[in-house]
Design a protein around this nucleic acid. Structure first.
Length: 445
DNA sequence: CGCATTTGACCCGCGC
DNA sequence: GCGCGGGTCAAATGCG
């Protein structure tokens, strides 16, 4: 009920002008918060090497919490209002998590990327992945609900450590090469289309399932990890979902501050796993990107934290072409560019595929929605009734970039991220995964 | 006849 | 504790 209060308040009985006024007021607040946050981020960058960092950061957090209704993200100005105590708890916890591990100027914790790398390595035993992975604990498999029943004790203990019980990856796509067996169908409340349940039929024991709604665009929710060999296209998708889920499972990554990085990593992965993915593009990406910019941001990805089912939604219906940019003008944006044309970075970055990286950082609002079960909403679709979303995408476009002056904080933060060895290592792993076993620069290994 | 799909019942978790 | 809703099971049905 409470989860939908925002929508209800917007949708019920309000005169349009009043709505507009409220929206305008909210926008102003957001803008102010963004500006303030940018200043705070820059301050954080300057202070990041000092031990009192945490104290400063917490000071900011506590200040914001005192604001009560204005829980502000430090992630490049994205702001949102936390509506419930539980949500505030989550965000507070995430802020605390930020104090652990790497802390870069953008308040992005890079540790989760390691989880992404681990996720990419899930298939390494059955495919050629994973040479660049770390020797930490293996990425967990996500069992089907039946198996989960037997693992509730584990889940409970995980919950005590603020871990989600299950992580879902929701993918919007126009086709799917997987073979699925339908095992059930239900009418979902509030949705005219039935929700169907499928299981992967490649292997009887494969825990991967999907849930789909039959509209023109298939919305697929993945839970689990394939435990068998997959076709190339399916492997890419599996890695996408695994990486997304793994990153989402990371407590520190669930921090909204990390979402930009999450989405950027996922953007890369999903782009190469999209139905129209062309391996040749990947090769070109790794070799000729200076002359052929490869857009692999992913504009319509989103993350929700529905209770124990944090879900990341990836929209594969939008191609990787510049058409994605048509979404951009809807939001105020800040450019962040790893491209070779970005001179502030070039001196610090090795000559590598990533020197031409054109990424898309999309920080989405955390959203609860009970009716959608937490895994069917799509923030990218403006027809969806999520008027409460606050978008602050940070996109790059060689075209747009040259027209926008960058705040110093962005430049410094970008430099910090791109020059981080861990980040580069993870990206190298990802590249190895999708490009093949092409030789990588020594400094990436 | 075998396999896939449909559909109603059942189980279970969660919110009130 | 109760009700609701999501998820699963399994018998019934359809189809090649």
């Amino acid at each position: 009920m409470g989860d939908n209060s925002l929508l209800d308040s917007i949708g019920d009985g309000e005169i349009g002008s009043e709505k507009d006024q409220k929206l305008e007021s909210a926008k102003k607040e957001m803008e102010e918060a963004r500006e303030e946050n940018k200043m705070l981020e820059f301050f954080d960058i300057l202070q990041q090497d000092k031990p009192e960092d945490a104290a400063n950061a917490k000071g900011v957090s506590s200040h914001e919490e005192n604001e009560e209704s204005e829980l502000v993200s430090l992630s490049l100005g994205m702001s949102f209002k936390s509506k419930t105590k539980d949500e505030r708890k989550i965000y507070k916890r995430d802020d605390e998590g930020m104090d652990q591990g790497l802390r870069l100027g953008l308040d992005i914790n890079l540790d989760p990327v390691d989880h992404a790398a681990e996720a990419l390595n899930i298939s390494s035993t059955e495919s050629s992945f994973g040479e660049g992975g770390k020797d930490e604990e293996p990425c967990p498999m996500w069992p089907p609900s039946k198996v989960l029943k037997t693992m509730r004790n584990v889940d409970k203990s995980e919950a005590q450590h603020d871990q989600p019980k299950k992580t879902r990856v929701c993918i919007r796509a126009r086709c799917d090469t997987q073979t699925w067996r339908k095992y059930g169908q239900k009418m979902a409340k509030g949705n005219p289309c039935p929700r169907a349940y499928y299981r992967c039929t490649v292997s009887p024991s494969c825990p991967v399932q999907r849930c789909a709604e039959d509209i023109s665009i298939l919305i697929t929710t993945y839970e689990g990890t394939h435990n068998h060999r997959l076709p190339m296209s399916a492997t890419a998708m599996a890695c996408t979902t695994s990486a997304a889920a793994s990153m989402l499972q990371s407590p520190s990554l669930r921090s909204q501050h990390g979402y930009g990085l999450v989405n950027s990593a996922i953007s890369f992965i999903t782009n190469s796993s999209a139905p129209n993915y062309n391996p040749t593009d990947a090769l070109n990406f790794s070799t000729n990107q200076v002359s052929k910019p490869h857009q692999f941001y992913f504009p319509n990805s989103s993350i929700s934290t529905l209770n124990s089912h944090p879900t990341i939604t990836l929209d594969l219906t939008a191609t990787s072409s510049n058409s994605s940019l048509t979404h951009m003008p809807k939001y105020s944006s800040t450019s962040l560019n790893f491209s070779s044309g970005f001179s502030p970075l070039q001196s610090s970055m090795p000559p590598s595929p990533w020197s031409s990286y054109s990424g898309y950082f999309n920080s989405e609002t955390l959203t609860h929605n009970r009716n959608h079960g937490g895994y069917l909403f799509n923030t990218g679709n403006q027809n969806q009734p999520y008027l409460g979303h606050l978008h602050q995408p940070i996109h790059t476009s060689n075209n747009n970039f040259s027209q926008r002056p960058l705040p110093d904080s962005i430049v410094a933060a970008t430099k910090a991220i791109s020059s981080n060895p861990k980040f580069q290592s993870v990206l190298a792993t990802a590249l190895t995964t999708y490009v093949g076993n092409l030789p990588l620069p020594e400094q990436w290994k």
